[in-house]
Design a protein around this nucleic acid. Structure first.
Lengths: 152, 152
DNA sequence: CGTTGATAGTCAATCTATTTTACTATCAAG
DNA sequence: CTTGATAGTAAAATAGATTGACTATCAACG
């Protein structure tokens, strides 16, 4: 009896977890190669998020996006500032806020990381098709929205 | 100009990450409610994996599945044994191996966790359809296989 | 104005999880 | 009966995030 494909025997959260490591590994590897080898775990998300966005973001936004505490975010930013990836600049519209922006080095790392991510995106799209990827994105978004709805 | 849907503006790894927390939160919450409130982070995967499988697994398998070190797996199992979820029993085919199995309490936790996971699975399937979920699983599996191929 | 409550962030101490380094025991093959 | 690989343990160090307590700023109200 031919077994069901392995991906049908594994839980969806486990699939999500492993799929994510494909990206994490590739990005980490590319960054290491390019000399950006001192980025802490969640730093990838900080830099990745900053790469997409316009200018900079306040720490509070990192808190929401990463789902960690304010203090954790602060320390994460500390580490990235110390290592030359980020800068803190006071906001001029709200003097409580400190806006976090990428430095030159940070932009280099962001570019490297983005390239690695897009390479995987492209390979994936090449295999399953762009349509499938878009559909997967929607499904994941649905899952994420379910959480938002739940923890009201 | 109407913005693109948010899920098209976010990176796929970020989507994977957040989608996973929908499961993690729900499972964690259900376990807490049922009194299983002392399971460490990766313990969910250990218990979840054991729940699916037949009997027990050797620690080495956890190492591969969780992508952590042997020592990390050992300590994780330690914690779960100490808290009454797991048991270590020597394998009789290979005296080097220690097989990890669920205790009564462990099975209770596993059932709770599985129920929570399946509830989300069902809700998701209800929204996007079983076909879409299956397709998403295949796409994720493709992504995971890409990593296997890469780190040869 | 001046108070009150919420928001943005910091500092210090602690905790938890995981890795590093080093080791023992068992197996499988010649 | 050695050699090399495999399965796991033990202890210390480290990284990451949390908890608790605090400061500064803002926004609204009397």
């Amino acid at each position: 009896m031919t077994d069901a494909p392995w991906h049908e025997t594994v839980s969806l959260p486990a699939l999500l977890r492993h799929a994510r490591t494909t990206y994490a590994d590739a990005m980490r590897h590319a960054l290491d190669e390019a000399g950006y080898d001192d980025i802490p775990g969640n730093g990838l998300y900080v830099i990745g998020g900053l790469a997409l966005g316009d200018g900079g973001v306040p720490i509070g936004r990192l808190v929401r996006e990463l789902g960690i505490t304010k203090q954790g975010a602060g320390q994460l930013v500390d580490a990235l500032v110390l290592r030359g990836y980020l800068e803190r600049t006071p906001s001029d519209t709200d003097r409580r806020q400190l806006i976090v922006t990428l430095t030159e080095r940070g932009r280099g790392a962001a570019a490297t990381q983005t390239a690695a991510r897009e390479a995987i995106d492209a390979t994936l799209a090449g295999i399953v098709g762009a349509d499938d990827v878009a559909r997967t994105r929607r499904t994941l978004a649905t899952l994420i929205d379910m959480r938002r709805a739940t923890r009201a």
